[in-house]
Design a protein around this nucleic acid. Structure first.
Lengths: 222, 222
DNA sequence: GCTAGTTTTCGAACATGTTCGAAAACTCGA
DNA sequence: TCGAGTTTTCGAACATGTTCGAAAACTAGC
């Protein structure tokens, strides 16, 4: 029977491993640094690690788990910035750290939607938010709701933006938004027609920050 | 030169098409109804439509565009519910319609992140939100920010929940959250340890509604 | 040293999305 | 009627993630 690949527990017998999980993760990081994450294929990774493609699957469950492991690894190296004392500001700061860290690795898009948490290494950010909410007077369940709202909002912003960027770069087709707005000369949507011009100019970063503050303050002053 | 596949403009000459885009979309809908969207492959779709797989690519750009077309089609059939007069309530109602419609077809997950809009057919929901915000006194740019915040939040919630469901069903592995929480007996995160028990019990739907209201009210009373 | 058991490795193969180039089927003008 | 141009169709093939089964390489007990 095969032991858990994540915790090999070098118990006794067996063929000596020529490859380790850490080795594979390292090779993956190199490859991503060199070519970008879109070009990380299992075959290339295997080649760089010097093994057959199928060997990888003895050390990671699949490509997605590999990316998740990389994310957790990455989150572990996010510097734990000093956070403000005031609860609301502390929540905003922690959320911003989380947001910026995730936005910095937009290639982990697929992993972000696994649940309302990412790996162990990022738990201090979650704790910071929950803790501040409770210090502000929230009961436990509302603190969780607050955190989770922030998570939805943050993940949504990152996924939408990263994906839009990717598509625009991919085959320089116009932004989807533009193809929709181009047909807006029809008169049945007057308000949208009037706005369509200013729409694309509005920075998504601004939207994120304003919305985040509104979300947090709205949930705390209930 | 090949004309735009989306707008064939039956101008003049050429081999008579045995296949139409509408036919393909119809076959796709059937297939999804029969087997679920996860099992919609281009090859199966071609088989049901009675053509070679490669033929599909003359009528849709790729699988993603096909899904997007299906979504737009679907959005077109969302009944345009009567919305409340009061602006804040109208925004909440419109957002809820949008949310429920998208959540009802979680298989369109990949398309949702294309931009901050979906197809033409759903524009009335966008218009409803923007219009209500401006009626409430928002300038145009803030109305757009508001809409976009709602979009991020909604998309985030749907993607996270749909993806978590999918993974849990896929190979009945435990929720990612649980594997993280299981290691929470370490004492360095006391607040989280205390909360971990109640966390999974909190309904995501509740989180969504509370957060939505907070977001909207927070942004409007600025 | 030999055998049984275990772990790691890998080649073959499959499913899937997609590209490419050529063939088929048609229209129009000469 | 015929050839040029155009649109549609399709078979072959490729890249990629992944599974499967068998072979390789080792340890422990006899």
């Amino acid at each position: 029977m095969m032991k858990d690949a994540a915790a090999p527990e070098r118990g006794r017998t067996g063929r000596p491993p020529r490859t380790s999980r850490a080795q594979i993760l390292g090779a993956a990081r190199e490859l991503i640094d060199d070519e970008g994450w879109e070009r990380l294929t299992m075959r290339k990774l295997a080649a760089r690690a010097g093994v057959a493609p199928t060997t990888l699957y003895h050390h990671v469950r699949d490509r997605e788990e590999l990316l998740a492991a990389l994310l957790d690894d990455y989150a572990d190296r996010i510097p734990r910035r000093e956070l403000p004392r005031q609860p609301v500001e502390r929540i905003l700061a922690a959320a911003t750290v989380m947001h910026d860290a995730l936005a910095g690795w937009p290639w982990l898009v697929e992993v972000l939607t696994a649940d309302d948490l990412i790996g162990d290494a990022a738990l201090w950010m979650v704790e910071a938010i929950v803790d501040a909410a409770m210090e502000h007077g929230c009961p436990a369940d509302e603190a969780v709701h607050l955190y989770r709202s922030i998570w939805y909002y943050t993940v949504g912003e990152i996924l939408v933006r990263a994906n839009a960027d990717r598509k625009r770069a991919e085959l320089d087709r116009p932004a989807y938004r533009d193809t929709v707005f181009r047909r807006l000369d029809k008169p049945e949507l007057p308000r949208l027609s009037a706005i369509a011009g200013c729409w694309p100019a509005l920075c998504a970063e601004d939207t994120y920050l304003q919305g985040l503050r509104a979300l947090v303050e709205g949930l705390l002053t209930k």
